[in-house]
Amino acid sequence: MAAVATQALLGLFRDADSVAAALDRLRAANFAGHNLKVLTDTPYPEGAFGEDHEGHRLYVFPFIGATCGFSVGLLLTIGTQLAYPMVTGGKPVLSVPPIVHILYEGTMLGAILFTVLGIVFESRLPDLSGAPHDPRISEGYLGVLVTRTDGRRDVAERELRAAGAVDIITK
């Protein structure tokens, strides 16, 4: 029965107002906000559908990456020079300008790579959930995905249709 309890539903809509109405109706029917997702082919302004606010920790990633990159830069410049201290042209073994350049690039590279990882991680990608999807969303339709119907599939379907869903897809 677990499969029936968690069965997901996707309602397709033509406009943003109907999607907002669908979310209101589903919440009124006691579907938890975190189980309702709006799918679109373009970014809408935040809160356009009255969806729940979802937090993220993306801003932490660049700092971790920058720290890692800085450490690698330090190892490449100071570490390698101290490992084989060779005086060239009377210049000090640990010269500040080269260290600054390579530390800077290492720090930025680390920050950017970790930001990219953070974007992928926080976007919950790759998505292997197998939740229903419809190619019409890529053509301008808007989808309301009810990720857990908890045995109340018929209620969810009724509310989606009442809000103006043009089609319902089940998985």
Binding site: E54, L125, D127
Partner: peptide, 24 residues
Amino acid sequence: MGFRGTTRQWKLQTIAGILLSALI
């Protein structure tokens, strides 16, 4: 990678555009 266009994914896309721009 199974991108579906959820509001969370779009929000992160928008932030990513600005954050990566600022870093690059």
